[in-house]
């Protein structure tokens, strides 16, 4: 299934080939700009696809913090009278990163280090964002109700139940 939607059912549905397309775009971006790691994040802090140095991938802590920082700075900009937030750039001594909006719901994290220059990253990021937007916009948005049923959580429909204790157990 190659669809995504986010609204009526409040489910973001990422098909396997859509994710692969995102990853291809991000891989190309890493090659063109020499960015070390790039990730497409959803605004609630989930990694949708990533590429580059796998050692920078984690359990989601970085994505959650990045999405939080982005939302916080966006809110600050709005409160200070700037309704158009173009993201932000951190210039560290050894490593730099930037967060740029892709759509109102998605953002892109780029991690790079010297001698890669921010101007080059910014230029390549603009092209990449256009490619990602194109993918996102061309995806059909299915009707509400068709989303969750495509993921069979149980082999016996209507017989779905969990023992509460089975979800999380104390060690």
């Amino acid at each position: 299934m190659d669809t995504f939607t986010t609204h009526s059912g409040r489910v973001l549905h990422l098909g396997a080939s859509l994710t692969q397309q995102f990853r291809q775009i991000l891989t190309r971006y890493c090659q063109e700009s020499e960015v070390r790691y790039a990730a497409l994040l959803e605004e609630s802090g989930t990694v949708c696809a990533d590429a580059g140095d796998a050692s920078l991938r984690d359990q989601g802590e970085t994505a959650a913090l990045a999405a939080g920082a982005f939302a916080a700075l966006q809110a600050v900009a709005k409160r200070l009278g700037d309704g158009t937030f173009e993201g932000f750039f951190h210039e560290g001594k050894t490593r730099q990163f930037c967060l740029t909006p892709v759509t109102p719901q998605f953002l892109m994290l780029s991690v790079f280090e010297a001698p890669v220059r921010f101007a080059v990253v910014k230029m390549c990021a603009a092209k990449t964002i256009a490619r990602l937007q194109e993918q996102i916009e061309t995806m059909p948005i299915p009707e509400r109700g068709t989303l969750t049923s495509s993921l069979p959580l149980t082999s016996a429909p209507g017989d779905f139940s969990f023992e509460a204790a089975a979800l999380f157990r104390q060690s």
């Binding site: 299934m1 986010t6 409040r10 489910v11 973001l12 549905h13 990422l14 098909g15 396997a16 994710t19 692969q20 990853r23 959803e42 609630s44 989930t46 949708c48 696809a49 989303l147 993921l151």
Partner: peptide, 9 residues
């Protein structure tokens, strides 16, 4: 929002 990623399952 729930996120289903079929690629990473």
């Amino acid at each position: 929002m729930a996120v289903i990623n079929h690629d990473t399952r």
